[in-house]
Amino acid sequence: MIQFEKVSLTDLIVIVALSLGFVVATYNGEKEIAGTLGGGLLGYARGTVKTAPQEGAKNG
């Protein structure tokens, strides 16, 4: 059975807001803003994945 990690509310809000901003900027033809938002979205998502606690990680 597939198990999913719990996502914090803060991470969810940030990712949804950046995604909406990216879509709106792309729709309006703002390439520079869309590129910046896309980079921010990918960077934030990558940072949250890397900093997520691992199951087998030792504390200390």
Results as ranks from 00 to 15, higher is better:
Y27L: 09
L18C: 05
V16W: 04
L41G: 05
G38A: 02
P53I: 13
M1S: 15
G35M: 04
L18V: 06
V16L: 11
G60L: 15
G29Q: 05
Q3E: 14
L37E: 01
I15C: 01
L42K: 06
E32N: 08
L12Y: 05
I15W: 00
E32Y: 05
A17D: 10
A45T: 12
G29L: 04
G35T: 05
G60A: 15
E32D: 14
K31F: 10
Y44G: 02
D11C: 04
G43M: 09
I2L: 11
A45E: 01
T51R: 15
G56F: 08
L41P: 00
I33R: 02
F4N: 12
I2Q: 08
R46S: 13
P53N: 09
V23L: 11
L41K: 04
M1K: 12
N28L: 13
A57W: 09
I33H: 00
G56H: 10
V7K: 12
G60R: 13
G47Q: 07
V23F: 06
Q54N: 09
E30M: 05
I33Q: 01
I33F: 01
R46F: 15
G43P: 02
V7L: 12
E5L: 11
L20Y: 13
M1Y: 12
N28E: 15
A52H: 14
F4Y: 13
K50Y: 08
V49N: 07
Y44F: 15
G35Y: 03
V23K: 02
E5M: 09
A57R: 15
Q3S: 12
G56R: 08
L41C: 02
V24H: 04
S8Y: 06
N59F: 08
L42A: 14
K31P: 00
E55D: 10
T10P: 02
S19T: 13
L9S: 13
L37I: 11
V23C: 02
